[in-house]
């Protein structure tokens, strides 16, 4: 059991530099979708893709720089349970959207 990079409280804590890099990346990844929506530079589809990409990227930035997830062996259980949760979340959200889209489609066809 290695606790070299962990505080007494258990959770690994980064450096000030790490937090500042995380903050700057977060600001950039927040400003981009806000700017695109406010100005409407691109079409709807491109803007939605940009929103999804920047949101996912920012979630990863926060996981790495603020929560210090690094996939190291001491975090195996955290990482595995996290990946499991991501799958469940994806099933619930995408599955619901898929089912209801078909439902709406079929109901409209019935008219």
């Amino acid at each position: 059991m290695s606790h070299d990079n962990q505080g007494h409280g258990g959770e690994a804590h980064g450096s000030l530099k790490e937090y500042i890099i995380g903050l700057i990346l977060s600001i950039v990844l927040t400003v981009i979708p806000f700017y695109l929506v406010a100005t409407g530079t691109f079409g709807d589809t491109a803007t939605i893709i940009a929103i999804i990409v920047t949101a996912v990227a920012q979630v990863f930035v926060q996981l790495v720089f603020f929560l210090h997830m690094n996939g190291s062996s001491s975090q195996t259980w955290l990482t595995m349970s996290g990946i499991y949760a991501v799958f469940i979340v994806a099933f619930v959200i995408l599955g619901s959207m898929w089912i209801f889209e078909h439902l709406n489609h079929n109901l409209l066809m019935g008219h």
Binding site: G7, G9, E11, H13, G14, S15, L16, Y19, I20, G22, L23, S26, I27, T30, F34, Q62, F66
Partner: peptide, 22 residues
């Protein structure tokens, strides 16, 4: 934008607080 900035900054300041605690 202001709301988002407030919450984002608070996440950063909590990180700095954690450093101070350690």
């Amino acid at each position: 934008a202001v709301q988002t900035a407030a919450l984002l900054l608070s996440s950063f300041t909590f990180g700095v607080a954690m450093l101070a605690a350690h």
